Simulated scan of single mutants.
Amino acid sequence: MLSTKKIALLLRRKPLAAVGFVAFFVTVFLFVFSTGPATTKPRYSYAKKNTGWFAQKNRDSKIVTNMPKEHIAHYDLNALSESVKASGRGEVLILTPMAKFLPEYWQNLNKLTYPHNLISLGFIVPRTAEGDQALKQLEQAVKTAQSKPHKFKKITILRQDTESLGSQLEKDRHALAAQKERRSMMALARNSLLFTTIAPATTWVLWLDADIVETPTSLLEDMIMHDKPVLSCNVYQRYTENGEPAIRPYDFNNWVESEEGLRIASEMADDEIIVEGYSEIATYRALMAHFYNADENPSTLMELDGVGGGAVLVNADVHRDGAMFPSFPFYHLIETEGFAKMAKRLGYEVFGMPHYLVYHHNE
């Protein structure tokens, strides 16, 4: 603080500086100690609703907020699991890699009786000419479906950022020589789709191939009822034989391991895989496709070691724990069969329903 003598000296030598100095302290004094008339409004009113994202308190100490709803979301996954068990319902994510669009697939999907407001859909489409056409058809189908009252909760469409098999003809897709490359590509696509779309509230993930054109309308209810970590349907195909309708097994990737299969694997190089359903690799595994019996209970289960991707229900926690689709040889298995092996290595059981059929498109 300046003394009286110093202020007088300053006034004589630098009058302008002294006046400015005194004016500053007078202003501070009036601002701090003057309350003004009782009716004067404060300069900043915290009773006024805040226009930002963050909450302020009004005069009644109530929170007033303009934060966007669910700007910060909290999920207790244990509580979520218990809630699902109590209600018997949970959010389902149906995931489909789609190289071509089949109207029958879409029609069947829309007929599912599980509440559509609890179903989210996810698709991944390759960057090919056929994929471009599938994308256009899918987008149009989605617009139509979502304009109706019973629309799906959410629909996500991805374009594949990895390579895909050039030809999607059945004979080319299932040629033995193409299996390692094709299924490695499929695994990468599945993982991209899964990791992009799974949400904290997702309870179940249904992997449904784009070629599955017929299922019971109660597919989700029937599978969820079993409450299994991994559960696969038996995939068959309708065809005509001697002018009469018939059915035949299609997916041979649902199997139980055999001693011969283990022996073959033990003699393979690290980068080699076993592909089931081919006479060139006779594993003598028990294939679920051959266990179908029309007279048996469709709810019957059998334990499996490998699964296909036709219609497989996965508890979302299995994926969250790290079970994905290996694009590399994993114990000499790859993609969906490698996923089943990974799930079992994590301690989860894998099951199939041999007498519960879904149908694959017949080209």
Rank of each mutant, 00 (worst) to 15 (best):
K41E: 09
I63M: 09
E335W: 07
F123P: 04
M324N: 07
L231P: 01
Q168R: 14
V314T: 05
I72N: 09
V22M: 14
R89C: 06
Y239T: 11
K5E: 14
D251G: 07
H360Q: 15
L346C: 00
K5M: 10
A269G: 14
G166T: 11
L2W: 11
G131T: 01
L357K: 04
P42C: 10
Y284N: 15
R13N: 09
A289V: 09
Q107R: 15
F31C: 14
T336H: 06
L357Q: 05
L112H: 12
R183C: 06
L9G: 11
I94S: 03
L193D: 00
S258D: 01
M98H: 00
E335K: 01
L102V: 07
F291Y: 08
N108E: 12
L208D: 05
Y356H: 13
K154W: 09
V230T: 10
Y278A: 04
L333T: 05
E104W: 03
I155V: 15
P229R: 04
V64Q: 09
L10R: 11
Y356F: 14
G310Q: 05
F101C: 00
L188V: 02
E214P: 01
G306A: 12
D222F: 02
G347R: 08
T27R: 15
V318D: 00
D76I: 06
A17H: 14
K85S: 10
T197S: 13
N362R: 13
F330R: 05
R127M: 03
V256R: 14
F252N: 05
G347L: 10
D271G: 07
T197D: 05
M302W: 08
S218H: 14
M288C: 11
G277N: 08
F291T: 03
I7M: 15
W255A: 12
E130Y: 02
R263F: 11
T35I: 08
E337H: 04
D321W: 03
R248P: 00
T96W: 00
E170C: 11
D211E: 12
A199S: 12
A129Y: 06
R43N: 12
Y278F: 15
I247V: 13
K341G: 04
G310K: 03
Y359W: 09
L30T: 11
G20H: 10
V142G: 02
D295N: 15
S147M: 06
V19K: 15
S258E: 00
T283R: 07
F21G: 13
K5A: 12
T202I: 06
D132S: 13
P15C: 05
Q56G: 10
K14M: 01
V275E: 05
T128F: 05
T65H: 05
T300N: 07
A175T: 01
K5Q: 09
Y46M: 13
S164H: 02
L176S: 00
E82D: 09
S327C: 05
K143M: 04
N191P: 07
T300A: 09
Q56A: 15
S218V: 02
P245F: 06
M268D: 02
V84R: 10
T156R: 09
